[in-house]
Simulated assay, not measured.
Amino acid sequence: MIRFGIIGAGRVVSPRYVDVFTQELKDTSVVAVCDLVREKAVDVSARLGAEVAVDKEALLKRSDIDAVIIASESGKHFEHAKQALLAGKHVVVEKPPCMLPAQLDELVALARTQQRMFAPIFQNRYNPAMRAVKQAAQAGRFGKIVLATFRLRWCRYQDYYEDGWHGTWAMDGGVINQQAIHHVDALQWVCGPVSEVTAFKANALNKLEAEDTMIASLRFANGALGSMEATTAARPKDFEASLSIVGEKGLVVIGGIALNKIETWDFIERLPEDDTISLTHSQEVPTGYGLSHGPLLQDIVSRLNDGSLEPPITPESCRPTIELVHAVYRSIEDRMPVQLKDSPLSVRLGRG
């Protein structure tokens, strides 16, 4: 039985983690929840049958907690994950695992020293549709990849940015680091690494320090070209989160609102399962969070119960995602293309 504590009871934890812990996970429980807004912690803890911790320090001191889920503001993930590791807890951290690549390196080293698991959450890697396209890419079914793109067309109204941290440079960033980071991760996971970025941004409808709309042109190390298009200025709801890959031997489009549906799956060299793959690997999902937190968290729990400290999604595999976000922002800041080999860092993201 892996016993969890949760730091942060906001937008992600309330609807998604409550369902996962009460309906899906085995061999686990939530012991305590804390949040700066006590009412949120009270609400979530009641639904989970957990206690309310006075603060994160009190939660981390508890000997009946084995692992901690970090679901606080993005800009606090590094600090909170570090404190949890130093307290001897395994750490599960929501996206982004931290704001700067160097912070990720520090947490990886600390987890190794503390002999604890450090597990980032990029749940879309567990979507059946995404797993299918990853396997196809690994099997070489695309041949030479020609073009790889994603589009995110989601809706966030101004009140979303009025909580003091969403959309700020120090604590969050804009659409590319908050909402679209899942899709940045999916793109680089399947087709990366990226070698060059040219990006542009706008504040189309929402007022925030960072951007609500951005586009970027990419050159991949394998020679493919690509693009990223993301906005929270779609109205009146979330419409699309899609990934498309064009290769010399086939084309795939993963769509839906959470990379959850196989919309096109067409290869020159067909396999028997291709005829039914859109049915067997597509999901209906209620929100952009999708349905893969449960399988990913269950994998984490199973590994911990087996005595393994190797997370299902390694922090090292997430580093290119953080680097690509920084390259996008640095291109916007310098108004010019940037090379990933130069390790470009934003002068604002994670700094203010």
Rank of each mutant, 00 (worst) to 15 (best):
R303C: 03
K249S: 12
V325C: 07
G290K: 01
H293N: 06
K249D: 14
L259I: 10
T287C: 09
G256L: 03
I300H: 00
S227F: 02
V246S: 12
R319D: 10
I277K: 05
E316T: 15
A224H: 07
L304A: 02
E263R: 09
N260P: 08
P311T: 03
G294R: 04
E273F: 13
E323I: 02
F239N: 08
L225A: 13
L251I: 13
H326K: 09
E323G: 04
I268Q: 14
E263W: 03
S292H: 06
I332G: 00
A327D: 03
L251D: 09
N305Q: 15
T287G: 10
G247Y: 02
I322L: 14
L251H: 13
R319Q: 15
T231M: 10
R330L: 06
P286A: 08
T321F: 11
I262Y: 02
V253H: 10
G294H: 05
P295D: 09
Q298T: 06
A224G: 05
P315M: 10
R335L: 08
I257P: 00
V285L: 10
R270I: 04
P312G: 06
S308K: 13
T264C: 12
I257F: 07
R235K: 13
H281F: 12
E316S: 15
E248R: 13
P286D: 10
Y289W: 14
M214D: 01
A233F: 05
A224W: 05
H293W: 07
I322M: 12
S227H: 06
S282F: 05
V285T: 08
I215P: 00
E229W: 08
M336R: 15
Q283V: 07
G290C: 06
I262A: 09
K249E: 14
D306I: 04
A233P: 06
A230T: 07
G288S: 14
D238K: 02
L243P: 00
I215Y: 04
L251K: 12
I313W: 00
H326D: 02
A224R: 01
I268N: 11
A241E: 00
Q283W: 05
R235F: 14
H281Q: 14
E263Y: 02
I257V: 13
K261E: 15
W265G: 05
W265P: 03
Q283R: 15
D238V: 08
L297R: 00
D299N: 13
M228A: 11
I268D: 13
V301A: 07
G294S: 07
G226C: 09
D266E: 14
